[in-house]
């Protein structure tokens, strides 16, 4: 405990008296002065401890009466956890819905591409007059079928693209949910800061700073909160790796 004890003229006088008594071998008088000094020190210490105890007591009382902290612990945190779980669910659903639409669109587009190339070849042969009457009739039929294929597939692709469009609604919902969680975390932070301030007074002199594990994982970088060693882009990562002999 690091108490500040006021050192004034009184203390100086007491110290002088103590030295004087000791020089004169007056052990009894020296002992009296020492007792005086200790008394002053002890009473100041007790006052300081008493003040802190009252502060802690008062603050704990306000925590109990406004019930905010316990409410946050009992309701707020599980509530936030549920909300964030729901964010995972929503984003998971949206991603799968989008991926399904993409997976279903790709074969349709590939089929159209392949068919168009085949017919394009036949059409070139026709333009070069390298086609007999039978082949021409065959090509005409195939072109007719291709029109139907294009119309059908295009409307299917359009439907799936609409699905992709609609799947993005998760952004609005999750944004609102996360914003509420941020608000709750902010309240909790304020309350905890108050607690830490009190605890800090009791522990002044102790090294309160937790040892940060520099190598711990920090997940996706949040804009504005990157640490100094965060790589801004794939290019920076590549540069670092090439420096390491990659």
């Amino acid at each position: 405990m690091n108490m500040r004890i006021t050192i004034g003229k009184d203390n100086l006088d007491q110290a002088r008296a103590l030295v004087e008594h000791l020089e004169q071998d007056d052990v009894e008088a020296a002992g009296r002065v020492l007792d005086e000094i200790t008394n002053v020190r002890e009473s100041e210490l007790f006052q300081e401890v008493g003040k802190l105890t009252r502060e802690v007591h008062d603050t704990l009382n306000t925590f109990i009466t406004d019930k905010r902290l316990s409410q946050v612990a009992e309701e707020g945190i599980p509530d936030a956890r549920d909300r964030l779980d729901y964010v995972i669910t929503l984003t998971d659903q949206a991603a799968h819905r989008t991926l399904t639409a993409v997976e279903e669109c790709q074969p349709l587009a590939e089929k159209l591409d392949a068919r168009a190339n085949e017919l394009g070849g036949a059409w070139s042969r026709f333009l070069q007059r390298d086609m007999n009457a039978d082949d021409f009739r065959q090509m005409s039929r195939e072109i007719r079928e291709f029109f139907d294929l294009v119309a059908g597939d295009a409307s299917q692709i359009n439907g799936k693209l609409n699905d992709v469009l609609m799947a993005q609604e998760f952004q609005d919902l999750t944004g609102q949910i996360i914003r509420r969680v941020i608000g709750m975390v902010q309240d909790l932070e304020n309350d905890l800061v108050r607690l830490i301030k009190i605890a800090g007074k009791l522990n002044e002199g102790d090294d309160a700073g937790a040892d940060d594990d520099e190598k711990s994982l920090e997940g996706p970088p949040i804009p504005g909160r990157e640490s100094d060693s965060t790589m801004a882009s794939q290019d920076e990562v590549d540069e670092l790796l090439s420096g390491l002999g990659f």
Binding site: K215, V237, L244, F246
Partner: peptide, 13 residues
């Protein structure tokens, strides 16, 4: 990965 801290990348390397 989303981990993009220098120390992490060096560890992986």
């Amino acid at each position: 990965t989303a981990e993009r801290k220098r120390e992490n990348i060096v560890d992986a390397a």
